[in-house]
Design a binder for these strands. Structure first.
Lengths: 106, 106
DNA sequence: CTTAAATATGAATATATAATCATATATGAA
DNA sequence: TTCATATATGATTATATATTCATATTTAAG
């Protein structure tokens, strides 16, 4: 490896890490997604239940769930025509919980 | 308080919390800001040092530092015409460090 | 095979965001 | 005061994002 590249990168992050980290935090940077994940702390919810509870359009919830699903932050199980979504990443959910608590008593 | 409002809000977050939490994560959702904060793990840097190290425009760095400063994630001290920026939020920096490590061995 | 219910999807739109350029401001030295 | 250096700021532009509407798809029931 070239000496100059080493120097240039020694205090910087590689692209893959940067992408993964930024995507993870981006998932938690939108109020709607935070509200959805906050629901999923306690139990699983169907798409419609989330929409009703949070007073959001069904399509809004579905789009955001797809986003969260792609990042493997949520998973679902099917029961007939109903899909029950639940959390699927302990690390991220813990960060969210911590930050909510941090924000609450500040 | 109205019964209906209670019901609507019981599993939801209040607006202020939601704003604080989303802003915090938004700060960490941009690759450029992540790279800047990643530098500040080790030591303080001037604006120009950050720009040179990360090969960014001076104005880009300055804009992003203002963003991070507004959220009190960084602070600075002056030495002549030079401003040295450093980290100013342990909780957020720990989250970032954890997530970088998590991303690195995955 | 039709229908109803639940969910997903695509297109459109409005808004937010990041980077850049040009320039302003601030500090200290001469 | 003049100048050089470091940093900040405002305006512009390009891109990304979230929401919405309309409609498609999927599943199970009848």
């Amino acid at each position: 490896m070239d000496q100059e590249m080493k120097v240039a990168y020694q205090d910087d992050l590689d692209e893959e890490t940067l992408f993964l980290v930024s995507q993870t935090f981006k998932a938690l940077s939108d109020p709607t997604r935070i509200r959805i994940l906050n629901l999923l702390f306690k139990k699983e919810y169907s798409v419609n239940e989330i929409a009703e509870t949070l007073e959001l359009k069904q399509s809004t919830v579905s789009h955001q769930l797809r986003f969260l699903k792609n990042l493997r932050l949520v998973k679902y199980r099917r029961e007939g025509t109903t899909l029950f979504y639940s959390q699927d990443d302990e690390h991220v959910m813990n960060m969210l919980k911590q930050t909510i608590e941090h924000a609450n008593h500040s």
